[in-house]
Amino acid sequence: MTSKTVTGLAFEFASQLTPHREHALKRISLALIVAVLRVFSVLPYPFVARLGMVVGTVLYALPSRRKHIVLVNLRLCFPDKTSLEHQKLARTHFRHVVRSYLERGIQWFGSAQSIQNIVQLDSKIDLGDPAAPPTIFMGFHFVGIEVGCMLYSTHLPVASLYTRMSSTGLCDLAKRQRGRFGAEMIERATSAKKIVGLLRSGKPVMIAADMDQGVDNSVFVPFFGVPACTLTAVSRLARLGRARVVPFVTEVLPNYQGYKLTIFEPLAHFPSGNDVVDARRMNAFLEEQIVKFPEQYYWVHRRFKHRPSGMASVY
């Protein structure tokens, strides 16, 4: 259920065609996505949100690899729940994920005011403090992360790290639309030197480091008691950039009221100088947030894709 999934069937079919026809089909698929999202951007927000929940319910009823991944993650992280509880939570999660993709319309093509109208901001720090130290905003992959980042960029300058998608067209579209209010989009593979330079220049940097990006620059620390390959980028960049680390979470509000972006106090004594300790602390903070609204965390991602030596694959 990633952006790749939205166009996955078309691109899979396209790969079986001649290069010319494959390119044409991909362009048509991308144009269709843009057209649909533009339509969603002008429709009433509650209507789009409700439609997403309905489509998500339908898709959950169909067998899929993503459904399997969600259930595996939930069984590992919540072993005390029953099979029925896992199924119910997975179904609700699917609905939220699909809804979030339909809401890309307003997020990618809506005005700054339309985004501000659906997101409440609760910041524990003074975002306009001219004397603020270098800041890393540490995000987490809840379904609302996109709109939370978009809201911040409508208020203040920021640089945001992103991971390149397999579809060049879709990746370029996402980068362009996410940065249209002035956010500087930086590919995750960019050298740390550039990111540190931005931090020291006073520009905040947004980074989400809660997904399995491979064993390089990562450590295995518990996540709900399960060893999880966890990036050490946040603590390393904070140390090099002499930056404070400020967590933020975007929550979907009930009854189609929109979202709430919460910006927390900076983590005390972070980084500690020990990447393993910092990674575990990051996961512990995330666990505290997930239990508040577990259906909204990104369980469709293979969080335990890489395993410690000698441990079998779970997917």
Rank of each mutant, 00 (worst) to 15 (best):
G241A: 10
H141I: 01
P130G: 12
V34Q: 09
A279C: 13
G182V: 05
I33E: 10
Q120N: 09
P44I: 03
D126T: 05
A49V: 07
P133K: 14
C77P: 00
T232I: 15
N73W: 09
V234Y: 07
N217G: 01
M53Q: 07
R244F: 00
K193I: 14
H269I: 03
K292W: 01
R307P: 06
A174H: 01
Y298D: 06
Y256W: 03
H20C: 04
K203L: 15
T18S: 15
A268I: 07
V249H: 04
I186G: 09
H141S: 06
G139A: 04
R236G: 02
I207F: 07
S114N: 12
R200E: 15
D278I: 01
S313A: 15
V252H: 02
G310Q: 05
L121F: 10
R280C: 08
R66C: 01
G144F: 01
A192Y: 13
L156S: 12
S218N: 12
T163H: 13
I125T: 05
R242G: 15
V55F: 10
Y298W: 10
A243R: 01
E184Y: 06
M282G: 12
V234F: 09
L151K: 06
I106W: 00
I207H: 00
E265M: 08
I195E: 01
G197T: 12
F140E: 03
F109T: 07
P133W: 10
L25N: 02
F223T: 04
S166V: 08
T190Q: 10
Y315S: 11
D212Y: 11
F248V: 00
L253E: 11
A312Y: 09
A243F: 03
S309H: 12
R164S: 10
A279N: 09
R104P: 03
L173F: 11
Y315K: 11
S64F: 11
L156K: 14
L237V: 06
E287A: 11
A90R: 00
Q113Y: 05
R95Y: 00
H20F: 13
L37S: 03
S153K: 05
P254I: 07
G8T: 08
G139Y: 02
V196T: 14
S160W: 02
G197K: 13
R176N: 12
K305T: 08
V276G: 05
P204E: 07
T7M: 14
V143T: 14
M138W: 07
R236W: 07
R188L: 15
M311E: 15
R27N: 15
P308Y: 13
R307Y: 08
S313C: 07
H23K: 15
L253I: 08
P130L: 12
V314C: 05
S64A: 13
M282F: 09
P222E: 10
T92F: 11
A112K: 08
L237F: 05
K4A: 10
S123R: 07
V300N: 08
L253Q: 12
